[in-house]
Computed example of a mutant assay.
Amino acid sequence: MKLHRLAVATFLATAAMAAHAEITVSPMVGYHMFDNDKNIDDEAESSLALGYRVNPNVGLELRYGFANPTSKTSGAGDVRHEMATLDTYYRFNVENKLQPYVLIGGGLARGTGSGGAGYVEHTIANVAIGTFYEIYDNLAFRAELRGVEDMQESDHDGIASIGVTYSFGGAEPAAIAPAAVVAPVAVKVDGDDDKDGVLNSADKCPGTPTAVVVTADGCPKVLMETVSREMRVLFDTDKSIVKPEFNDEIEGVAKLLKEYPTATVEIQGHTDSRGSASYNDALSQRRADAIANVLVKNYGIAANRISTKGYGASQPVADNKTAEGRAKNRRSVAVAEGEVKVTVKK
Protein backbone atom coordinates (compact mmCIF):
# COMPACT_ATOMS: atom_id res chain seq x y z
CA MET A 1 0.00 0.00 0.00
CA LYS A 2 2.84 2.39 0.83
CA LEU A 3 4.35 1.68 -2.58
CA HIS A 4 1.11 2.61 -4.34
CA ARG A 5 0.67 5.81 -2.31
CA LEU A 6 4.23 6.87 -3.10
CA ALA A 7 3.69 6.29 -6.80
CA VAL A 8 0.39 8.21 -6.94
CA ALA A 9 1.57 11.17 -4.83
CA THR A 10 4.78 11.55 -6.76
CA PHE A 11 2.96 11.33 -10.08
CA LEU A 12 0.50 14.09 -9.09
CA ALA A 13 3.26 16.37 -7.81
CA THR A 14 5.33 15.87 -10.93
CA ALA A 15 2.35 16.47 -13.24
CA ALA A 16 1.47 19.71 -11.42
CA MET A 17 5.02 20.99 -11.69
CA ALA A 18 5.15 20.05 -15.37
CA ALA A 19 1.94 21.85 -16.39
CA HIS A 20 3.97 24.40 -18.33
CA ALA A 21 7.36 22.64 -18.46
CA GLU A 22 9.04 19.78 -20.31
CA ILE A 23 8.03 16.33 -19.13
CA THR A 24 9.49 13.01 -20.21
CA VAL A 25 8.19 9.46 -20.48
CA SER A 26 10.73 6.61 -20.55
CA PRO A 27 9.53 3.03 -21.19
CA MET A 28 12.45 0.62 -20.67
CA VAL A 29 13.28 -3.09 -20.51
CA GLY A 30 16.23 -4.66 -18.75
CA TYR A 31 17.66 -7.37 -16.59
CA HIS A 32 17.35 -7.34 -12.77
CA MET A 33 20.21 -9.09 -10.96
CA PHE A 34 19.04 -9.89 -7.43
CA ASP A 35 21.28 -10.25 -4.38
CA ASN A 36 21.93 -13.94 -3.59
CA ASP A 37 20.47 -13.47 -0.11
CA LYS A 38 17.04 -12.90 -1.66
CA ASN A 39 17.15 -16.48 -2.90
CA ILE A 40 15.42 -15.65 -6.20
CA ASP A 41 16.62 -15.95 -9.77
CA ASP A 42 17.69 -13.00 -11.88
CA GLU A 43 14.94 -11.97 -14.26
CA ALA A 44 13.93 -9.56 -17.02
CA GLU A 45 12.36 -6.32 -15.80
CA SER A 46 10.05 -3.76 -17.38
CA SER A 47 9.92 -0.18 -16.15
CA LEU A 48 8.28 3.16 -16.87
CA ALA A 49 9.65 6.52 -15.74
CA LEU A 50 7.80 9.85 -15.74
CA GLY A 51 10.15 12.83 -15.55
CA TYR A 52 10.16 16.59 -15.13
CA ARG A 53 13.10 18.67 -16.41
CA VAL A 54 13.79 21.48 -13.97
CA ASN A 55 16.28 22.94 -16.45
CA PRO A 56 18.27 21.55 -19.39
CA ASN A 57 20.67 19.74 -17.02
CA VAL A 58 18.62 18.76 -13.97
CA GLY A 59 15.51 16.60 -13.84
CA LEU A 60 13.23 14.71 -11.46
CA GLU A 61 11.92 11.26 -12.30
CA LEU A 62 9.36 8.83 -10.86
CA ARG A 63 10.21 5.25 -11.86
CA TYR A 64 8.15 2.08 -11.49
CA GLY A 65 9.76 -1.30 -12.25
CA PHE A 66 8.26 -4.78 -12.35
CA ALA A 67 9.87 -8.23 -12.55
CA ASN A 68 8.50 -11.75 -12.08
CA PRO A 69 11.47 -13.86 -10.93
CA THR A 70 11.34 -17.48 -9.75
CA SER A 71 12.12 -18.32 -6.15
CA LYS A 72 15.04 -20.70 -5.55
CA THR A 73 13.16 -22.25 -2.67
CA SER A 74 11.73 -25.60 -3.71
CA GLY A 75 8.02 -25.36 -4.42
CA ALA A 76 7.81 -21.60 -3.73
CA GLY A 77 6.97 -20.66 -7.32
CA ASP A 78 7.24 -17.21 -8.90
CA VAL A 79 7.77 -13.97 -7.00
CA ARG A 80 6.18 -10.63 -7.93
CA HIS A 81 8.82 -7.95 -7.45
CA GLU A 82 7.89 -4.22 -7.67
CA MET A 83 9.99 -1.12 -7.11
CA ALA A 84 9.03 2.60 -7.10
CA THR A 85 11.61 5.36 -6.72
CA LEU A 86 11.78 9.14 -6.91
CA ASP A 87 15.12 10.14 -8.43
CA THR A 88 16.99 13.21 -9.55
CA TYR A 89 19.51 13.21 -12.36
CA TYR A 90 22.06 15.53 -13.91
CA ARG A 91 22.71 15.51 -17.66
CA PHE A 92 26.07 16.46 -19.13
CA ASN A 93 26.78 17.91 -22.59
CA VAL A 94 23.14 18.90 -23.17
CA GLU A 95 24.13 20.77 -26.32
CA ASN A 96 25.26 17.47 -27.92
CA LYS A 97 23.31 14.43 -29.07
CA LEU A 98 25.13 12.11 -26.63
CA GLN A 99 24.29 13.21 -23.07
CA PRO A 100 25.68 11.10 -20.20
CA TYR A 101 23.97 11.39 -16.82
CA VAL A 102 24.23 10.40 -13.17
CA LEU A 103 21.21 9.64 -11.00
CA ILE A 104 20.44 9.25 -7.30
CA GLY A 105 17.21 8.60 -5.45
CA GLY A 106 15.20 6.34 -3.22
CA GLY A 107 11.84 4.70 -2.70
CA LEU A 108 10.17 1.42 -1.79
CA ALA A 109 10.50 -2.17 -3.02
CA ARG A 110 8.08 -5.03 -2.46
CA GLY A 111 8.24 -8.71 -3.20
CA THR A 112 5.35 -11.14 -2.84
CA GLY A 113 4.97 -14.76 -3.77
CA SER A 114 3.14 -17.99 -3.04
CA GLY A 115 4.16 -20.46 -0.37
CA GLY A 116 5.85 -17.84 1.76
CA ALA A 117 8.53 -17.04 -0.83
CA GLY A 118 8.28 -13.25 -0.47
CA TYR A 119 9.05 -10.28 1.67
CA VAL A 120 7.29 -7.10 2.73
CA GLU A 121 7.94 -3.52 1.62
CA HIS A 122 11.46 -2.27 2.23
CA THR A 123 13.00 1.18 1.88
CA ILE A 124 15.60 1.34 -0.85
CA ALA A 125 18.20 3.76 -2.19
CA ASN A 126 19.61 3.68 -5.70
CA VAL A 127 22.26 5.27 -7.87
CA ALA A 128 22.73 5.01 -11.62
CA ILE A 129 24.85 6.05 -14.54
CA GLY A 130 23.53 6.20 -18.06
CA THR A 131 23.27 8.14 -21.27
CA PHE A 132 20.71 9.70 -23.56
CA TYR A 133 21.29 9.81 -27.31
CA GLU A 134 18.99 12.23 -29.12
CA ILE A 135 17.40 10.75 -32.23
CA TYR A 136 15.02 13.67 -32.75
CA ASP A 137 14.35 16.82 -30.76
CA ASN A 138 11.75 15.01 -28.66
CA LEU A 139 12.96 11.40 -28.84
CA ALA A 140 16.14 9.86 -27.41
CA PHE A 141 17.62 6.38 -26.95
CA ARG A 142 18.44 5.64 -23.29
CA ALA A 143 20.75 3.11 -21.60
CA GLU A 144 21.35 2.77 -17.85
CA LEU A 145 23.14 0.76 -15.13
CA ARG A 146 21.47 1.06 -11.73
CA GLY A 147 22.53 -0.12 -8.29
CA VAL A 148 19.85 -0.71 -5.62
CA GLU A 149 20.49 -0.88 -1.86
CA ASP A 150 17.91 -2.48 0.47
CA MET A 151 18.15 -0.31 3.59
CA GLN A 152 16.65 -3.00 5.90
CA GLU A 153 18.46 -6.11 4.65
CA SER A 154 21.61 -4.52 3.20
CA ASP A 155 21.03 -6.40 -0.02
CA HIS A 156 22.56 -5.11 -3.26
CA ASP A 157 20.76 -5.49 -6.60
CA GLY A 158 21.83 -4.40 -10.06
CA ILE A 159 19.66 -3.45 -13.05
CA ALA A 160 20.78 -2.97 -16.66
CA SER A 161 18.15 -1.28 -18.85
CA ILE A 162 17.65 0.16 -22.31
CA GLY A 163 14.72 2.08 -23.74
CA VAL A 164 13.62 5.39 -25.18
CA THR A 165 12.70 8.77 -23.71
CA TYR A 166 9.95 10.88 -25.24
CA SER A 167 9.78 14.60 -24.33
CA PHE A 168 6.86 16.98 -24.75
CA GLY A 169 5.89 20.48 -23.62
CA GLY A 170 8.40 23.00 -22.39
CA ALA A 171 9.13 24.75 -25.70
CA GLU A 172 12.21 26.85 -25.45
CA PRO A 173 11.42 30.55 -25.08
CA ALA A 174 11.93 32.61 -28.17
CA ALA A 175 15.24 34.37 -28.31
CA ILE A 176 14.96 37.95 -27.22
CA ALA A 177 16.60 40.35 -29.59
CA PRO A 178 19.00 42.71 -27.90
CA ALA A 179 17.48 46.08 -27.23
CA ALA A 180 18.39 48.70 -29.77
CA VAL A 181 20.81 51.27 -28.49
CA VAL A 182 19.18 54.65 -28.75
CA ALA A 183 21.54 57.54 -29.09
CA PRO A 184 20.87 60.35 -26.64
CA VAL A 185 18.90 63.18 -28.17
CA ALA A 186 19.88 66.69 -27.35
CA VAL A 187 16.88 68.62 -26.10
CA LYS A 188 16.85 72.21 -27.23
CA VAL A 189 15.14 74.59 -24.87
CA ASP A 190 12.56 76.69 -26.72
CA GLY A 191 13.33 80.40 -26.64
CA ASP A 192 12.41 83.70 -28.24
CA ASP A 193 15.51 84.84 -30.10
CA ASP A 194 13.98 87.93 -31.74
CA LYS A 195 12.20 89.00 -28.53
CA ASP A 196 8.84 89.44 -30.26
CA GLY A 197 6.87 87.47 -27.65
CA VAL A 198 6.47 84.35 -29.85
CA LEU A 199 8.53 81.22 -29.06
CA ASN A 200 10.97 80.04 -31.72
CA SER A 201 9.02 76.81 -32.33
CA ALA A 202 5.94 78.81 -33.38
CA ASP A 203 7.71 81.79 -34.98
CA LYS A 204 7.28 81.75 -38.76
CA CYS A 205 9.12 85.05 -39.18
CA PRO A 206 12.33 84.89 -37.12
CA GLY A 207 14.30 88.09 -36.85
CA THR A 208 11.29 90.41 -36.74
CA PRO A 209 12.28 93.95 -35.64
CA THR A 210 11.31 94.64 -32.05
CA ALA A 211 9.57 97.90 -32.98
CA VAL A 212 6.73 96.26 -34.92
CA VAL A 213 3.55 94.56 -33.78
CA VAL A 214 3.48 90.81 -34.61
CA THR A 215 0.72 88.27 -35.11
CA ALA A 216 0.37 84.94 -33.25
CA ASP A 217 2.81 83.28 -35.68
CA GLY A 218 5.50 85.91 -35.10
CA CYS A 219 5.10 87.78 -38.40
CA PRO A 220 4.68 91.58 -38.64
CA LYS A 221 1.10 92.74 -38.44
CA VAL A 222 0.20 94.65 -41.60
CA LEU A 223 -2.75 96.73 -42.72
CA MET A 224 -3.85 97.54 -46.25
CA GLU A 225 -3.95 101.27 -46.95
CA THR A 226 -5.11 103.06 -50.09
CA VAL A 227 -2.66 105.43 -51.82
CA SER A 228 -3.76 107.89 -54.50
CA ARG A 229 -2.46 110.67 -56.72
CA GLU A 230 -4.53 113.24 -58.59
CA MET A 231 -3.62 114.81 -61.93
CA ARG A 232 -5.06 117.83 -63.79
CA VAL A 233 -4.03 118.74 -67.36
CA LEU A 234 -5.56 121.66 -69.30
CA PHE A 235 -5.96 121.84 -73.09
CA ASP A 236 -6.27 124.61 -75.67
CA THR A 237 -9.59 125.16 -77.44
CA ASP A 238 -10.54 122.28 -79.70
CA LYS A 239 -7.17 120.57 -79.03
CA SER A 240 -6.09 117.21 -77.52
CA ILE A 241 -2.34 117.85 -77.56
CA VAL A 242 -0.62 117.51 -74.17
CA LYS A 243 1.40 120.63 -73.45
CA PRO A 244 4.92 120.17 -71.92
CA GLU A 245 4.05 122.35 -68.94
CA PHE A 246 1.90 119.48 -67.61
CA ASN A 247 4.59 116.79 -67.81
CA ASP A 248 5.16 116.95 -64.04
CA GLU A 249 1.49 116.17 -63.42
CA ILE A 250 1.65 113.09 -65.63
CA GLU A 251 5.00 111.98 -64.19
CA GLY A 252 3.57 112.06 -60.66
CA VAL A 253 0.90 109.55 -61.68
CA ALA A 254 3.49 107.38 -63.44
CA LYS A 255 5.67 107.24 -60.30
CA LEU A 256 2.77 106.02 -58.17
CA LEU A 257 1.89 103.34 -60.71
CA LYS A 258 5.49 102.12 -60.77
CA GLU A 259 5.86 102.12 -57.00
CA TYR A 260 2.65 100.18 -56.44
CA PRO A 261 2.32 97.46 -59.09
CA THR A 262 -1.32 96.77 -58.19
CA ALA A 263 -2.40 100.42 -58.59
CA THR A 264 -4.58 101.49 -61.54
CA VAL A 265 -5.61 104.84 -62.98
CA GLU A 266 -8.75 106.19 -64.61
CA ILE A 267 -8.25 109.19 -66.92
CA GLN A 268 -11.25 111.43 -67.62
CA GLY A 269 -11.53 113.88 -70.52
CA HIS A 270 -13.71 117.04 -70.46
CA THR A 271 -14.60 120.03 -72.72
CA ASP A 272 -16.23 123.43 -72.40
CA SER A 273 -19.78 123.97 -73.61
CA ARG A 274 -19.03 125.21 -77.10
CA GLY A 275 -19.74 122.75 -79.90
CA SER A 276 -22.25 119.95 -80.23
CA ALA A 277 -22.59 117.27 -77.60
CA SER A 278 -21.38 114.51 -79.94
CA TYR A 279 -18.35 116.53 -80.98
CA ASN A 280 -17.49 117.35 -77.38
CA ASP A 281 -17.84 113.69 -76.35
CA ALA A 282 -15.34 112.64 -79.04
CA LEU A 283 -12.96 115.51 -78.18
CA SER A 284 -13.01 114.67 -74.48
CA GLN A 285 -12.24 111.01 -75.27
CA ARG A 286 -9.26 112.06 -77.42
CA ARG A 287 -7.93 114.18 -74.55
CA ALA A 288 -8.15 111.22 -72.11
CA ASP A 289 -6.49 108.90 -74.65
CA ALA A 290 -3.67 111.43 -75.18
CA ILE A 291 -2.75 111.28 -71.49
CA ALA A 292 -2.87 107.45 -71.57
CA ASN A 293 -0.50 107.37 -74.57
CA VAL A 294 2.04 109.48 -72.68
CA LEU A 295 1.94 107.07 -69.70
CA VAL A 296 2.40 104.04 -71.95
CA LYS A 297 5.01 105.40 -74.37
CA ASN A 298 7.04 107.70 -72.13
CA TYR A 299 6.86 105.84 -68.79
CA GLY A 300 6.27 102.20 -69.74
CA ILE A 301 3.00 101.79 -67.85
CA ALA A 302 1.02 98.73 -69.00
CA ALA A 303 -2.08 99.72 -70.96
CA ASN A 304 -4.27 97.26 -69.03
CA ARG A 305 -3.71 99.33 -65.87
CA ILE A 306 -5.17 102.45 -67.53
CA SER A 307 -8.80 103.19 -68.32
CA THR A 308 -10.06 106.30 -70.20
CA LYS A 309 -13.46 107.92 -70.59
CA GLY A 310 -14.67 111.12 -72.25
CA TYR A 311 -17.47 113.03 -70.54
CA GLY A 312 -17.87 115.89 -73.04
CA ALA A 313 -19.22 119.08 -71.45
CA SER A 314 -21.41 117.27 -68.94
CA GLN A 315 -19.22 117.89 -65.86
CA PRO A 316 -18.04 121.52 -65.85
CA VAL A 317 -16.00 122.79 -62.91
CA ALA A 318 -16.33 126.48 -63.83
CA ASP A 319 -18.72 128.90 -65.58
CA ASN A 320 -18.71 128.34 -69.36
CA LYS A 321 -19.95 131.95 -69.92
CA THR A 322 -16.47 133.33 -69.30
CA ALA A 323 -13.21 132.66 -71.09
CA GLU A 324 -11.54 131.87 -67.77
CA GLY A 325 -14.25 129.38 -66.85
CA ARG A 326 -14.14 127.68 -70.23
CA ALA A 327 -10.31 127.30 -69.94
CA LYS A 328 -10.73 125.43 -66.64
CA ASN A 329 -13.32 123.11 -68.17
CA ARG A 330 -11.03 122.08 -71.08
CA ARG A 331 -9.21 119.50 -68.98
CA SER A 332 -8.22 115.91 -68.26
CA VAL A 333 -8.14 114.67 -64.70
CA ALA A 334 -7.01 111.37 -63.24
CA VAL A 335 -6.92 109.60 -59.92
CA ALA A 336 -4.40 106.77 -59.54
CA GLU A 337 -5.19 104.44 -56.62
CA GLY A 338 -3.58 101.35 -55.15
CA GLU A 339 -3.37 99.36 -51.92
CA VAL A 340 -0.18 99.07 -49.91
CA LYS A 341 0.75 96.92 -46.92
CA VAL A 342 1.69 99.02 -43.94
CA THR A 343 3.50 97.44 -40.98
CA VAL A 344 1.91 98.33 -37.66
CA LYS A 345 4.41 99.88 -35.29
CA LYS A 346 4.29 99.53 -31.51
Rank of each mutant, 00 (worst) to 15 (best):
residue 6 L to E: 05
residue 8 V to N: 12
residue 11 F to W: 15
residue 15 A to N: 07
residue 16 A to E: 12
residue 17 M to V: 10
residue 20 H to D: 13
residue 23 I to G: 10
residue 24 T to R: 10
residue 26 S to H: 01
residue 27 P to F: 03
residue 30 G to Y: 02
residue 30 G to V: 00
residue 31 Y to E: 06
residue 32 H to R: 02
residue 34 F to N: 06
residue 34 F to L: 10
residue 34 F to P: 01
residue 35 D to P: 07
residue 41 D to W: 02
residue 42 D to S: 10
residue 44 A to K: 02
residue 45 E to C: 09
residue 52 Y to K: 06
residue 55 N to A: 05
residue 56 P to R: 14
residue 60 L to R: 03
residue 60 L to D: 01
residue 63 R to D: 04
residue 64 Y to S: 07
residue 66 F to R: 05
residue 66 F to Y: 11
residue 71 S to R: 00
residue 72 K to G: 03
residue 75 G to A: 03
residue 85 T to Q: 01
residue 90 Y to P: 07
residue 104 I to K: 01
residue 107 G to A: 10
residue 119 Y to C: 00
residue 121 E to R: 05
residue 123 T to A: 00
residue 125 A to S: 13
residue 126 N to E: 14
residue 127 V to I: 15
residue 135 I to H: 12
residue 144 E to L: 07
residue 144 E to H: 08
residue 148 V to L: 10
residue 156 H to E: 06
residue 162 I to Q: 14
residue 173 P to R: 00
residue 175 A to K: 11
residue 176 I to A: 14
residue 179 A to D: 13
residue 182 V to W: 14
residue 203 D to T: 02
residue 203 D to W: 01
residue 204 K to C: 08
residue 207 G to C: 04
residue 209 P to F: 08
residue 211 A to V: 04
residue 218 G to V: 05
residue 226 T to Y: 07
residue 228 S to D: 09
residue 232 R to H: 15
residue 248 D to I: 01
residue 249 E to S: 08
residue 250 I to F: 09
residue 251 E to Y: 06
residue 251 E to D: 02
residue 251 E to H: 12
residue 256 L to V: 07
residue 256 L to W: 04
residue 260 Y to F: 12
residue 262 T to L: 15
residue 263 A to F: 04
residue 265 V to F: 06
residue 267 I to G: 12
residue 269 G to L: 05
residue 270 H to T: 01
residue 273 S to D: 14
residue 277 A to N: 06
residue 281 D to K: 15
residue 284 S to V: 02
residue 286 R to F: 02
residue 287 R to A: 07
residue 292 A to C: 09
residue 293 N to T: 11
residue 295 L to K: 08
residue 302 A to V: 01
residue 305 R to E: 07
residue 305 R to C: 03
residue 305 R to A: 11
residue 306 I to R: 04
residue 309 K to R: 10
residue 311 Y to W: 14
residue 311 Y to V: 00
residue 312 G to E: 03
residue 313 A to W: 07
residue 319 D to L: 03
residue 325 G to D: 09
residue 330 R to G: 08
residue 334 A to R: 03
residue 343 T to A: 14
